[in-house]
Amino acid sequence: MAQLSDTDTDESTPVVDELRDEIVARLRADLGDAVVDVHQVPQVDLWVRVTPESWRAAGEALRAQGFDYFCFLSAMDWMPSPFGDGENDPTEEVEEDPAASEIRQGYTGGDTRFQMLARVTDTRRHVSVTLKADLPQHDDGAMSIESWIPVYAGANWHERETHEMFGISFDGHPDLRNMYLPGDFEGYPLRKDFPLLARLVKPWPGIVDVEPMPASDDDEGDDS
């Protein structure tokens, strides 16, 4: 397995990945400016961010390239949880850290709090692509993007799940019923501002585990 690198280093790594380069080149040729950003870990994985308008077109372009295996479709909420990460005792007062509530998107960047996330695979060339797209919120907070069902029929349930969990509606989806939650459920559980009540009312006993251990011989690594 190729050694991994966290930094965005197409140039500094000697590993070349012609296969993924070619995929990106073809995608750029098909979609033009719609390909906003590309992140590649050579020999391991590939991330591509497209504009929300070309979400379906990107799916079609990938499908035409041979990415006909639909892996998953979901979304991301990049806003840090206002309730903390559950690692602290909720009964304690936490001092406000403005940097902690800053929205930082992951690979391939982005401008919006929510991002689409989907992954497709080419079972012949044994390569996969993770596709992302920004999701601009309308004034009322609603978000919508084109459905992928015409491209990948299997996106049906994934889009239902995403709609239920994030409140993203999919244009052209025939049936956006809830899969898990009752029909009259309010709120979108996987949004970061949806409180996990069980964790808020009582400190998680597991907190004990993450308290710093007394000094030991082990190298504490990057632990601060």
Binding site: C71, F72, V210, D219, D222
Partner: peptide, 30 residues
Amino acid sequence: TKVPRIIKVPEGEAWVSTENPLGEMGYYVV
């Protein structure tokens, strides 16, 4: 292998899936 006692995973995104008994089981970890 040698790992820190308190594990902090560096910033990044990773997808790993394996051929589980039921099929492809994967985690997209951010």
